[in-house]
Amino acid sequence: MPVRRGHVAPQNTFLDTIIRKFEGQSRKFIIANARVENCAVIYCNDGFCELCGYSRAEVMQRPCTCDFLHGPRTQRRAAAQIAQALLGAEERKVEIAFYRKDGSCFLCLVDVVPVKNEDGAVIMFILNFEVVMEKDMVGSPAHDTNHRGPPTSWLAPGRAKTFRLKLPALLALTARESSVRSGGAGGAGAPGAVVVDVDLTPAAPSSESLALDEVTAMDNHVAGLGPAEERRALVGPGSPPRSAPGQLPSPRAHSLNPDASGSSCSLARTRSRESCASVRRASSADDIEAMRAGVLPPPPRHASTGAMHPLRSGLLNSTSDSDLVRYRTISKIPQITLNFVDLKGDPFLASPTSDREIIAPKIKERTHNVTEKVTQVLSLGADVLPEYKLQAPRIHRWTILHYSPFKAVWDWLILLLVIYTAVFTPYSAAFLLKETEEGPPATECGYACQPLAVVDLIVDIMFIVDILINFRTTYVNANEEVVSHPGRIAVHYFKGWFLIDMVAAIPFDLLI
């Protein structure tokens, strides 16, 4: 008679799926529990143990900040960024110097990925580790590398530091407007667009060049630039800015003055950032001319202004700041037409079709709590990747769950009947059967004279019903998954307890 339990259901295979997918890609990662103190490590794979030199037993239950890997060259700011990422709910990448158990130093890129439950609360953290440099290539500990984003994938490793954006290309926007319009339909740009040429040739750093990471940081200074100062900065030398009595002219307006920039070969870094931020506020060169004239017309309804409409929906549905990093990277690809469009465009503009998908598509409701890094690593669709929660398995109709209350009560009843059979069957065979043979035949009273025979008949009927119930009862397979398919249940029961239950259900007393 089957006594099969499996009270692990309803099970959740999400954690096993993450481990299996990460292991298949030869990654070095740990999984931490966000619900406990210090976000203790609950799993670390073999790749991480080989990377740091510690065994799994030495890593388990330690804080996922990996303070046991810190050393003299470990930056405090990087460690603080990892700790801050564990307090938030967004994906974050941090470069930090770690030390192995043998004392060797290596520069590592740590990717902190939160995993949320159905309520939107962070319950786990996945920390992925990628070695960037070994100890002989690690720089000085005073050099802070965590304020910069990861290198873009479309640049060669040897040319990542030679990417320079020439400031004269930004200063000569109005001069290039006529050349853009003359391109017409034969050019790649839309009317009114501004073409910015980027020099990728390796050259020595000069005062006129600005690194790509500095251009990325310009967006942080746009908020500090007032509207009046932006307007004066875009007017140009024809209309000098008016300053109040006793007030000095704005240095932001002076930063885009061609006369002032041409007199000296070098520009201050602050002026460069502010000038680029001011130019980015204009949607095209037409807006710059309109600002000089004193009238700013409404933005025209053409394809170039609607190019950012799908980007707005993608940004609203993005799951991490990696989408913004990807957008900034692609927006700086050289030799393309940049349409400086305000994100607050007309909502009635139709979304044009684009061959290049900048932001990841909208994630469906079932995966809105899973970050983009987890979705990318697992390579699963929205119909396959579940949320991290207890999910009731989908069972067929008329199927009994093996952990249901009805099955528990039924098993206790069958257990009592088995005990009765084990006690009274030998007793009936030894004593009652002998008395029946010696006594007179009682054929007239039937079952009324033999109450134990009636009980034995009921017990046999219950055993037959138990066999039928076992054909529709779920079970737990070797992978700790609840199986509810009727065919698989029948095959599993035939290979197991079916023969024993059938022999126990045969009414031998009635056959004798």
Rank of each mutant, 00 (worst) to 15 (best):
G183K: 11
A83P: 15
R20L: 06
L69G: 01
N45R: 01
P168Y: 01
A79E: 03
T353M: 07
M218F: 06
A185H: 14
F129L: 05
V132K: 13
V295W: 13
G24H: 10
P298I: 05
H254D: 12
D219W: 06
A211C: 07
D136Q: 11
E50K: 10
A382E: 15
D119W: 05
E37I: 06
C49E: 05
R77D: 05
V3Y: 09
I126S: 06
L15D: 01
E208C: 01
L107Y: 15
A253L: 14
C66D: 01
A204D: 05
R77F: 09
P245D: 14
P347V: 07
V110G: 01
I123M: 05
D346I: 10
R301E: 14
C66K: 01
M60Y: 14
V374Y: 13
V222N: 09
P63C: 13
F106E: 01
T174S: 14
V138T: 14
S153K: 14
F14M: 07
V384P: 08
P361F: 05
N117L: 07
C276E: 10
E134N: 13
R252F: 09
S313I: 07
T174I: 12
V94K: 01
K161A: 06
L385R: 14
L155F: 06
R269D: 07
A244V: 12
I363M: 12
V122Q: 05
W154I: 08
H7N: 03
R5M: 08
K93A: 13
Q61I: 01
F129C: 01
F163D: 09
L212Q: 05
Q84M: 14
Q335R: 08
I96Y: 01
Y43M: 01
S284Y: 05
W154C: 04
R176Y: 03
P297Q: 08
A34F: 01
D144I: 12
A156L: 14
G262N: 15
V113N: 08
L378F: 03
A307G: 12
P168V: 01
S318M: 01
R280H: 06
Q75K: 10
K364S: 11
A83S: 12
V180K: 10
R56G: 01
V325G: 14
A172Y: 01
T371D: 04
Q84W: 07
C52Y: 05
P240I: 08
T329V: 07
K116A: 08
L86V: 08
G238A: 04
